[in-house]
Design a protein around this nucleic acid. Structure first.
Lengths: 339, 339
DNA sequence: CTGTTAGCGCCTTCAC
DNA sequence: GTGAAGGCGCTAACAG
């Protein structure tokens, strides 16, 4: 039997069709035995609720939007490297996992400016939204002010108190990196970063790293964003590395680490042998490098899976009475051979 | 007025609601003046048909699936490099462009084996499907046999005659690469590749490249897939490069080019200065490299935009009477400074 | 907790 | 070429 028919399920389970519906939308309001009966019948008949009909009746769109905001101001973060593309597939997988067996569907949306948030008729497009890669206060504020459907923002959003959010924890990530170096016997690290006052996550990563080395002060070398900064920062440390006054480098992200690696290479120094090296973001660079870079993975899949769950909760509850909720996903160490 | 109400539009246009509906679904069956009246009224009222209701009534799902097949057998193609991730965002953008203003919505689906194609109840999930990154005959055949909704396969599919497909043209891409070298004054190239008998696209790329150099025979150096193969192949050519008997290298893809580049670097040879170098796929490696690699971009966005259009056509027509259609998207040269 | 009932907005015969 | 009318599968009151 292939045909989706709720009434057949109801009949087989010996309940009314409304109860079948409840099992999918308000499972808490159905007694255990009936719920089981319905679920069994549904499985037997290969039934699953029709999302279009559900959306129609509910007077919603049946859609959840994943919203990306294109922003020129991001240049300082990554240079012109399209980092977002690497994450995106993981992000989608995480979201799909949970959206797939909800009554909703995923829909992808790209905004070209923050102003668009206010001018869109959200209710017409979707019943809820996840905002991708929100970093700045300004962005969070625009969402709160302009998005008229339930929304959760992700993923560098731990400090935005005024809205629902799901974040990575850059401090912990930095700490994990530092602790890993310690575990491996490194004791005199330096940290290479940029714009910590402007880019909060960079500051947090350093703070965490420093936190792991609580007994000493970790020097932070600042340069310009990206590989050029990494190269020059490393260059300035070469003599200290050679003399053993620095035995390891923490780097704020993989992209910057590329410059670090190029410099080390130019100097004939090999990560993992001559110096410990740990970076952040776990970009798929290992194939390109002559060794495997140890890095911190912020787990975009888990992050957005969590965000999706939050959103679904939010959409299910009364939206007006939204008490702000925040969830955190802890980053993970990915071991290579550079430490 | 925000509320979508077809009857209001009908009233304003002085027609029945059925006519409004026809304007969106069978525009040919409505007379010009009335059609215009409806469209004007719709614009004025901000009306657009409700996709959920439409899908419900039509007894379809209102969904178009983008299907990715996870395949372990792909290892020879890319090693363990997650190339797919790179393309995916472009692919999605291309598809979204066209799906967005259709009556359908996009839905992402991942299969873990070819067998799944036959066991899925397609009609329950979607009204049409695009199969992502189909390369092997076996895959194409599985789609034809097992997918019960209209489907188009993409993007290395030019030779699969039994189903709807939208392909890149690897031969032309190779030719473009070769011609570019010629234009720049290179005359004695070699080509670095692997498994041309197993991986059709690799063979086609070489054939095209050779085609551009019709007056000479381009030596093809074969090795193992990926950077190791690239490294070793280049190594074997070093003396010929040094003596000027080879003045340029065509490489089957960027990933392999990484090995080539590492070897050249180890030998103190600089692409663009000591030798011409052109690769394929336009992966975002430039940031990682100390120069900009000239490469061929197969334009995944255009490719899948085309595929989407084809699918929509297919879904609109009578599916049984499907005469096979095939479309081709020509790759593009992306100039760096390695040539 | 559970069943009954009234549409949600649209597409599609079927008449005209 | 056009209008009238039924019903797609579901959810949200409401009444028990």
């Amino acid at each position: 039997m292939t045909k989706n028919n709720r009434d057949k399920v109801a009949e087989l389970a010996g309940v009314s069709s409304a109860t079948v519906s409840r099992v999918y939308n308000n499972p808490d309001k159905v007694s255990q035995p009936r719920k089981k009966a319905v679920l069994d019948a549904a499985k037997l008949l290969g039934y699953s609720p029709d999302k279009s009909a559900s959306a129609l009746r509910r007077k919603g769109t049946g859609q959840i939007s994943l919203v990306s905001i294109k922003k020129k101001k991001r240049t300082p973060y990554w240079g012109d490297f399209p980092t977002a593309k690497w994450f995106y597939t993981d992000v989608l997988n995480g979201i799909m996992d949970v959206v797939e067996d909800s009554m909703y569907r995923l829909n992808l949306k790209t905004l070209h400016s923050l102003d668009e948030i206010a001018s869109i008729n959200w209710k017409q497009d979707c019943d809820g939204a996840i905002f991708y890669d929100v970093v700045e206060q300004e962005e969070a504020a625009a969402v709160v002010a302009g998005c008229s459907v339930p929304a959760v923002i992700s993923h560098n959003t731990s400090v935005f108190t005024e809205c629902m959010r799901c974040s990575t924890n850059n401090y912990q990530g930095g700490e994990i990196a530092g602790r890993h170096l310690l575990d491996k016997g490194y004791e005199k690290p330096a940290y290479i970063s940029y714009l910590p006052e402007m880019i909060r996550s960079n500051k947090e990563r350093y703070d965490g790293f420093q936190g792991a080395f609580s007994h000493i002060e970790v020097p932070q070398i600042l340069g310009e964003p990206g590989k050029k900064g990494g190269y020059e920062a490393t260059k300035s440390l070469i003599s200290e590395i050679r003399t053993g006054r620095i035995d390891a480098l923490g780097v704020v992200n993989d992209l910057t680490a590329i410059g670090v690696i190029q410099c080390l290479q130019d100097e004939g120094l090999k990560p993992g042998r001559d110096i410990g090296l740990i970076a952040y973001d776990n970009m798929p660079l290992n194939y390109v490098l002559p060794f495997n870079l140890t890095s911190i993975d912020l787990r975009p899949d888990l992050l957005y899976r969590e965000a999706s769950c939050m959103l679904l909760d939010l959409m299910h509850s009364d939206y007006d009475s939204h008490k702000i909720v925040s969830r955190i996903v802890i980053p993970e160490l990915v071991e290579g051979d550079s430490v």
